[in-house]
Amino acid sequence: MRRPWLFTLLAAVLAISGVVALSSTQAEAQQSPRSAIYGGGPFYQDGQAVMNTLRASGFTTVILWSIHVHGNGDLYYNDILIVQNGRYVGDAGWPARLRTLKQAPTSVNRIEVSIGAWGVRDWETIAALISSGGTGPSSILYRNFQALKAATGADAINNDDESFYQVSPTAAFARMAAGLGYSKFTFAPYTNQSFWVNLKNNLGGAMVDRLYLQGYAGGTGNNPATWRQALGMTVDPGLWSRHGSGCSAGDSPATVESKMRSWRGSAGIVGGFMWLYDDMKACASQGNAAAYARAIRNGTS
Rank of each mutant, 00 (worst) to 15 (best):
P4N: 05
F7M: 12
F7S: 04
T8A: 15
A11G: 14
A11T: 03
A12C: 11
A15C: 10
I16Q: 07
S17P: 00
V19C: 10
A21Q: 13
L22Y: 13
T25H: 08
P33V: 02
G39P: 00
G39N: 02
G40R: 02
G41W: 08
G41S: 12
P42N: 11
F43N: 02
F43I: 10
Y44H: 07
A49I: 03
N52F: 05
N52W: 11
R55A: 14
A56R: 14
A56Y: 14
G58S: 09
F59H: 10
T60R: 04
I63F: 08
S66Y: 04
N72E: 11
G73H: 13
D74T: 04
Y76T: 02
Y77N: 04
D79Q: 07
L81P: 00
I82K: 01
I82M: 05
Q84D: 11
Q84R: 15
N85I: 02
R87C: 07
Y88E: 00
V89W: 08
V89I: 09
P95M: 12
P95W: 09
A96P: 01
A96T: 15
R97F: 14
K102E: 15
S107E: 02
N109Y: 05
N109Q: 06
R110K: 08
I111L: 13
S114Q: 13
G116Y: 04
A117L: 14
W118M: 08
G119C: 07
D122S: 14
E124I: 12
E124H: 12
T125V: 11
T125S: 05
T125A: 06
G133W: 02
T135N: 07
P137T: 06
S138L: 12
I140G: 05
Y142N: 13
N144C: 08
L148T: 01
L148V: 09
A150K: 08
G153N: 08
A154M: 10
D155H: 12
D160V: 02
E162I: 05
V167I: 14
V167N: 06
T170N: 12
A171W: 10
A171M: 10
A172C: 11
A172N: 13
A174F: 04
A177S: 09
G179L: 09
Y182M: 08
S183Q: 12
S183C: 03
N192F: 13
S194Q: 14
S194W: 05
F195Y: 15
N202W: 06
L203D: 03
L203A: 13
G204A: 15
G205D: 07
A206I: 00
Y212S: 01
L213P: 00
Q214M: 09
Q214N: 11
A217S: 14
G221M: 11
N222Y: 15
N223M: 09
A225Q: 14
A230Y: 12
T234K: 10
T234W: 02
D236K: 01
D236T: 06
L239Y: 11
H243Y: 13
A249L: 12
T255P: 00
T255N: 10
K259A: 15
W263H: 03
W263G: 00
W263L: 03
M274W: 03
Y277N: 01
D279H: 10
D279G: 06
M280W: 01
M280G: 03
K281T: 09
K281R: 11
N288A: 09
A289Y: 01
A291H: 03
A293S: 09
R294N: 15
A295H: 05
R297D: 08
G299D: 06
G299N: 03
T300L: 03
